[in-house]
Design a protein around this nucleic acid. Structure first.
Lengths: 190, 190
DNA sequence: ATGATTTTTTGACTCAGGTCAATGTTTTTT
DNA sequence: AAAAAACATTGACCTGAGTCAAAAAATCAT
């Protein structure tokens, strides 16, 4: 299946895997087709799956007590991720996951994911690498929030992830940059 | 030595270790006494050590292009940490580390740290746990920055980490909360 | 102890980005 | 293809937090 081959490739980019072990890993992923706007994880639920996005786009976001959406992480194919904080702790998530487009993904359960961490040293290393990358990504996000103006954050995103800006609505981009839709609209016309 | 015993205790709180292996780990840490305001890592240098703070306080911070200090992580005894992004990638750090008080710490080199990751499975698990916690901490910080007002962030810090507020100067607290010293001063008199 | 440096407080003013509201424009549904 | 819903733009106005400056208080060094 095409999606599984793509996942195989992505995993091997991180570090070389024994073919047999890689098969065992890939076998744990199950394909799923997600409709646009479908919610994969609601606030308060426990994040029990980890995803590979083969086609489409999902995001994690949360809702402030003022009722505003804040997007944290946008996953456009090919990419991997989940609501990590809840996935790690197996406590209720403060984040949602939803699909921004019709999305074809592969999902592995928390149970299988951690079983593989114990059984396959290479997979533990892979997990460690994911955590390192996720950490660095978050750190970078804080740096941007704290040091850059709204305009500078927008310019940075265009420069570093033009695909995202082209493909997603202003509403989503604004909530990702932590600015209002109206502000983004004004920024663009400058 | 007292510091090493404290470190031993802290490590065992994460997960049980074989005594012999724990000795091997502890042996890799070397004690050091840091003067107040001393810089342990400057921007542009590579983070080559990981610390256990036995007495005192150090922090990581960076300087914006406007010349303002932003503190990211405050470590008061007993605690562990370093400039993680650079430590992980072994690329030049955008962060500084300095001592906010005279500090007694134990340091392990990057080389030893990762050698132990390869040699001692329990230590790899420990490292994984550190990464998970660091990630969740950063995630929480983003949530605070994005959803709370300056006053709310200050109140949250007092509630969750009163020790820090009592012990450190307003200047440091303000830079940690990402507000100006003047603003913090006004907040307090409300 | 005392002078020097650093930190904290207070006041007056500014401004980036938010809010609210109205009007276009695109997308979705039937 | 029309109606409805969601999204984007624009204008007028507001506000939380920053800036600049100066004085008061605390801390440090000799």
């Amino acid at each position: 299946m095409e999606a599984k081959n793509n996942l195989r490739q992505l995993i091997q980019m991180f570090s070389p895997f024994d073919a047999r072990e890689l098969d065992k890993i890939i076998d744990c992923f199950e394909p799923r087709l997600i409709k646009k706007n479908a919610i994969l994880l609601a606030e308060g639920e426990i994040s029990k799956e980890f995803y590979f996005i083969n086609r489409g786009c999902i995001r994690t976001y949360f809702i402030t007590k003022q009722g505003h959406e804040k997007s944290r992480y946008l996953m456009i194919e090919p990419s991997i991720g989940t609501a990590l904080t809840s996935f790690i702790s197996q406590k209720p998530s403060f984040e949602f996951i939803d699909a921004l487009e019709e999305t074809e993904l592969l999902a592995i359960s928390h149970k299988d994911f951690y079983r593989l961490v114990d059984e396959i040293p290479q997979w533990k290393n892979f997990y460690l690498k994911i955590m390192e990358m996720a950490y660095s990504f978050q750190n970078r996000k804080i740096e941007s929030l704290v040091t850059l103006s709204a305009k500078e954050r927008y310019d940075q995103l265009i420069k570093e992830n033009p695909k995202v800006v082209q493909r997603l609505s202003n509403k989503i981009i604004a909530s990702y940059l932590d600015i209002k839709q109206e502000t983004l609209s004004r920024l663009k016309s400058k």
